[in-house]
Nucleic acid binder design. Structure first.
Lengths: 301, 301
DNA sequence: AACAAAAGTGCACTTCACGCAACAACGACT
DNA sequence: AGTCGTTGTTGCGTGAAGTGCACTTTTGTT
């Protein structure tokens, strides 16, 4: 009994013949000639070593073995149908899973709107958000844990991954209403450096950007506090312990009620936010759909 | 997306490539050349409109879509494997169902030994016994309710079905020890007709045979009692109400403790017991196996 | 920098499947 | 009972699909 050579068309042929009851009808349903179907059934019976249909030139009767095979065939075709439908649903992003890594500022400030829109368009997709520091975002995407990542477009980012810039996130100075930024005007970066600075911890993209700006200005940063979380920085500023410089994107995370923001006139450094993905790797359909959505939503300001 | 043309070899190819990680290894496992596999994967990807593997000349990486397809493919191949194993088990009579119709005398006297042996050889097969009158046996087999039937080989039987004779069941006279058959010798049929006869109801094969014998002897039967069931006949004889003539095969059904049996010297009619099955219909594998067992058990006496 | 290994491609060949036409057998209708 | 129509099967030719071999290209390694 040669089972391995059995193909899906064999199953389809048997099913059609069982349902139609005649070779002619079954062949028509399958879209081929009666002779072709006859050969196929004969060949299958030969390979199986079992007669599936008792037939003469006038009648066709399914044997017990034929019915047994038909049950198997029906299950098989259902499985194929279901499987392909499932795959098609996956490809067309109707179901699946999408993991997005992002800097905390992005996940908090930008992602809510995006994933809101996405989950409306693709309700069947399980969304996972990974908020991590800059390095972890790249790591997550590179290792495949995350499909996409939102990160700042630093040099290291662009070399390891494909980076698609979305918009520039400008730095503003944040201070207490009664603090050194009380005057409602733009401040120069040199001015700010004179104030007590609350800086983000090293390893964050914000800190990386600020360090780079200092380098270009030929100055150096001497922070009064270093904090790991944006909210902490906000709290410290609210307590009038100092000022800080943050990208505007991060502001929604903070409670701005008791804070004021001022432009930095000559800071120059912008945080270029973009979408990272592995180079040379095809995006999963949900990831591609999400990328499409992001582009469509015109974040560029 | 062309889903319908997807074939089992596509699933096998994807599975092999996922598992092996290289075209070369996968091709070897599939028993074909790397180029053929390359074309197959490319063709599948084209039909699906989705890239399943990211590959350069050196590395092969499964995409998210490829893994999704792989999950579907694995399920598919398991289903095929299971299904074919199930069918193979059915064909080789390791599982399935077998319905045997038989005359009450046969089912009671002969079948127990046979189905005992059969269920030892084929423990996975569900056995159903249909004990019915002669006509019902044929009906059950003809309609497909029963796969096989044990019946007496009358003319009508042979014309409608394929009849395979197994053995001849001879008639003996049954009486009460104190009745007219008290003498331990053979009795002529004419003698017995003089005694009070307990006959089986019309429609039973026993009655059919006896009527035939009377016809040949130029006599006629005038039964004192007519009963539908063998056990009833036996009970009547036990009560010394008369004598009866029955095939030896039926005797195990009766309680012979208070009965005696005597040869009928010139009765001449034997009941030819045989296996009936539909003409022109292939037997189900369990039925074929059972037939084989019956032939092997050499019932011919 | 050169080599080796692996995937992709052009080309020729085989094999498989298909349709058409002829054939055989069975059933129905007169 | 004879005839005709229908239905499954088979012989044959054709076309497409698949396969292997040889070669190219690219990439990782020594």
């Amino acid at each position: 009994m040669e089972l391995t050579n059995t193909t899906l068309s064999d199953f389809r042929a048997v099913m059609a013949l069982i349902d139609a009851g005649t070779f002619r009808g079954a062949a028509e349903r399958l879209g081929l000639s009666p002779s072709a179907l006859s050969r196929q059934i004969t060949g299958l019976e030969t390979r199986l070593g079992v007669r599936l249909f008792d037939r003469d030139t006038r009648n066709v009767h399914t044997t017990a073995s034929g019915e047994a095979f038909g049950r198997v065939a029906r299950r098989m075709l259902y499985t194929v149908e279901d499987g392909m439908a499932e795959f098609e649903a996956y490809v067309s992003s109707r179901q699946g899973r999408l993991t997005i890594a992002g800097l905390p500022s992005v996940t908090a400030g930008l992602l809510p709107r995006l994933i809101g829109a996405f989950s409306v368009e693709h309700p069947g997709i399980d969304l996972r958000i990974l908020d991590a520091l800059s390095g972890s975002v790249l790591e997550a995407v590179e290792s495949g844990i995350a499909d996409l990542g939102f990160a700042a477009g630093t040099v290291s980012t662009r070399s390891r991954m494909h980076f698609e810039p979305l918009f520039d996130d400008e730095f503003v100075a944040i201070g207490h209403p009664d603090g050194p930024l009380a005057e409602n005007r733009g401040y120069a970066w040199a001015e700010i450096l004179e104030m007590p600075i609350i800086a983000m911890a090293e390893g964050t993209s914000v800190r990386e950007l600020i360090d780079g700006a200092c380098l270009r200005h030929g100055t150096s940063l001497s922070p009064r506090f270093e904090v790991a979380h944006l909210a902490t920085a906000g709290a410290l500023v609210s307590a009038a312990l100092g000022v800080t410089a943050l990208p505007t994107m991060t502001l929604p995370v903070l409670n701005m009620a008791s804070l004021i923001q001022r432009p930095i006139t000559d800071f120059g450094a912008k945080r270029r936010i973009g979408l990272v993905r592995r180079t040379g790797r095809t995006l999963s359909p949900p990831a591609a759909a999400f990328t499409e959505l992001v582009k469509r939503s015109r974040l560029v300001r």
